[in-house]
Amino acid sequence: MRKVAVLARRELRAYFDSPVAYIVLVVFLLLSGWLVFSTLFLLGEADLRQLFTPGLLSPALLLVILAPAITMRLVAEERKSGSLELLCSLPVSDWQVVLGKFLGALGLATVALALTLAYPLTVTWLGPLDWGGVLAGYLGLLLFSAALLAIGLACSALTSNQIVAFIAAFGISAVLYFVYWLQFFLPEWLAPAADYLALSGHLDNLARGVIDLRDVTYYLTLTAGALLLSERALARQHA
């Protein structure tokens, strides 16, 4: 477990030693702030649910784009530079590598989400705020990010090309995100499956302030599945 922490710290540090962390943070903060506060200025009402609700123009969609950008380098870069071989020769298991890299990326996403706490804090200063709903929303975004990052990690673990890793992860995430709104076009028997599999539907529930175990389980299962795939991809390296 200590080695997982060491690896996670190294990944998080790598983000902040390069422009990646700053670009991700600035883009996420500016755009999500704009999305939230545009309603404040246009309609004169502050609706923080904007921050959490998935939509065609929402912070969640930003995460669908930014998460693959965060994760694309995790394994692909090391495979290309050859340092993966050195890493594999160290007394660390593939699981420790996968978890370390995942937690490093999740660390960056957590920082991005934590910085947006400035928005609810601003709103409390303007008027009363349902902190319970905000917490459920943040839990939703965190679980949502975890699933996206795990998918991105799996894609990065399967290739040595960062662009491929990015596009594959973005493609999968975007399909899982948008299928929620497209289920009306699907055959009737497929619609419930699409509804369940959609990344956005479960976030929608949490954004309403409802913490349903089914939604939490969905994200945790998806994350665990993608991490398992990453571990298998890394183990294939030894084959």
Binding site: A14, S81, G82, S83, L86, S89
Partner: peptide, 14 residues
């Protein structure tokens, strides 16, 4: 074992 792979692939950013 201490292993040094060919071309010393280290973490360049560190």
């Amino acid at each position: 074992i201490g292993y040094l792979p060919e071309n010393a692939p280290l973490y360049d950013d560190m």
